[in-house]
Design a protein around this nucleic acid. Structure first.
Lengths: 94, 94
DNA sequence: GCCAATTGCAAATCGTTAATTTACACGCTA
DNA sequence: TAGCGTGTAAATTAACGATTTGCAATTGGC
């Protein structure tokens, strides 16, 4: 069903992957996005798009899915917080 | 890295979950969305949002992640088709 | 053949979000 | 003090998703 706890925003996790000395501006430069764009992600003001997931994958040598899936978890959790109409489970034919 | 083949659009998969006799209109009704909205998804004209993933989960008794992840795979594949600037892999400190 | 149901789709509208550039204020430090 | 790095706001532009309305094509029953 649902994850009981608020999953970490991908931006928080991404922060841990940025080397000590590197500035946000430098990281943004290497990723080919504006400083504002990366800053917003790191501070949870923006999500990670498929395009960004691919950039992170190339930059950090990870899979794009890791980042995209993290974003998905976040979005589902957010969506769960909102009310939704009652949906009757479909009776599947046996 | 990348999935070699164009992943199935979530809508195609969703089609298989709708019972034989049930109409798109009926399914949309049970999901609490408009007929147009569901039709677009089934025909690959729209993606599956986190909210829709939750509706499908409730309706089909599956996890929301199944649908959301399917959507993610689709989006990543789509994004891969577009050109992206060269991104030099970050040399991680050992 | 005729009619109603179903469906795909287009168009218009509305709301949300990502990304950019520009700009400003704050904090740190050489 | 001057400069750098940063967070963030504002204004723009571009995508999407969702809705309603309406229309055309198909299909099945009578």
């Amino acid at each position: 069903m649902s994850r009981m706890h608020n999953p970490a925003h991908p931006g928080e996790v991404l922060r841990e992957w940025i080397p000590e000395g590197m500035t946000v501006s430098q990281a943004a430069g290497q990723l080919g996005v504006s400083r504002v764009t990366l800053s917003k992600i790191l501070n949870g003001k923006s999500g990670i798009t498929a395009d960004m997931a691919l950039r992170l994958a190339a930059w950090l040598n990870t899979s794009a899915e890791v980042w995209a899936d993290m974003q998905t978890q976040w979005e589902i959790w957010q969506a769960e917080q909102n009310p939704r109409p009652v949906i009757r489970p479909l009776k599947l034919a046996a």
